[in-house]
Design a protein around this nucleic acid. Structure first.
Lengths: 213, 213
DNA sequence: TCGCTTATTGAGCATTTGATCAATCTTATT
DNA sequence: AATAAGATTGATCAAATGCTCAATAAGCGA
């Protein structure tokens, strides 16, 4: 968001005026810049380009991160942090609320969280390069969100169809694919994915005889 | 498949025996190797590593491709070529066959075509790096497969729901996501995706009152 | 078997790139 | 205003990397 104060004192502050920041602050600034940078160009982006974008020397980066890999690790942490709200498992299994409402609320919040340029692209890049954090995230998602969701669908099901984990992944994948089209493939997409999501959820529930619409 | 003849005459042919191939053949061998190589490590893979894997000098690559980018273009062509069978549009709109059968036949063939390591990873890599070929492919897919499919669903629909293009993309995305989990994220997946696909298609048809199951 | 064409090699060039470190300059403190 | 601490820089290194080219030798025809 804020790459630099940019204007402080004089209206036109000659750029590249050496600016001294508290280490913690500078570190965070570098991480934020690195997230945006690597999201855009991939993890093979050059440290010199990142430094230039930050308005800082390349050597400065190595004062805060011993190696480029260490910086990338920090980027991972920053991006993966808090991507799964801890209260979702509870809210998804709160049977005092209709299942459809729970599902729509979850995917409404989740999609605004993940349908973002930085997340989508860094998640995909790290997945491609085999980052362990990626599989950990997906396992976690499966364990604390999708598996309980399967239980809820089973519980609410009125038709003979018994849902499977693959069915849940299919629902999830169909929704996530919107974000992939938008930020990875950069293909024309609806500005507001919520109607597509709602319809997907309703189709899914209908198949198991759950129609609260 | 065949990196080298490997055994010809003597049982143990000392490797790195200089082997002279017809240019066309060598070129194809390089392309095939490059597809596998770049699929695995991404397009920032080094030409020296690729050459080593081919059992050939790095400089040889530049006798067949002026630049690395040109080699990558050849990889694109090789991978994207014939990924969409030209008879699918016709078969998908052949109303003498039940829609469900057409859909299942299409996704059965299509999934075996695209749920492959090389395709999935190169398609995703090229998408991330903004390759034009990627968007072209998706536009083509939308135009010649998914759009006609929308027409077929509309025609067969028995419920009040009117399908939209986004609904079709959702069906498609949910299915493709299986391949993404398998080859990009390397997450546990069903060996045979056909049951998941069948169930997804059936849920979709059911939502529009099309149940021929 | 000899000779010729040309596929292939190996050495090497110019940049790029991650990483280092002593010198410099900003800023808080006195 | 003077001082000290340490954040930041600029020059630089070594390795990696895309690419070139003269030299080499594999395989075909005579």
């Amino acid at each position: 968001m804020d790459i630099n104060g940019q204007a402080e004192g004089s209206v036109i502050e000659e750029r590249s005026a050496r600016r001294r920041l508290p280490p913690q602050e500078r570190r965070q600034q570098i991480i934020d810049g690195a997230v945006a940078f690597f999201a855009e160009v991939g993890f093979d982006g050059k440290t010199r380009d990142l430094a230039k974008r930050l308005g800082v020397t390349q050597s400065l980066l190595f004062n805060y991160f011993a190696t480029k890999d260490e910086l990338i690790e920090a980027v991972y942490e920053q991006v993966y942090l808090n991507r799964l709200a801890p209260d979702w498992p509870d809210r998804l299994t709160d049977r005092s609320v209709p299942l459809r409402g729970r599902l729509l609320a979850f995917y409404s919040e989740y999609s605004t969280l993940i349908f973002q340029y930085e997340w989508m692209r860094i998640f995909m890049s790290s997945g491609l390069s085999g980052a362990e954090l990626n599989r950990r995230y997906l396992k976690h998602l499966g364990d604390v969100i999708l598996r309980p969701l399967l239980g809820e669908i089973e519980f609410a099901a009125r038709s003979g169809e018994i849902p499977t984990m693959e069915d849940i992944w299919n629902l999830h994948g169909g929704i996530v694919y919107i974000g992939i089209r938008q930020h990875i493939y950069r293909t024309p997409c609806p500005d507001d994915p919520s109607v597509a999501i709602t319809r997907a959820v309703d189709r899914f529930l209908l198949a198991f005889g759950i129609d609260e619409a």
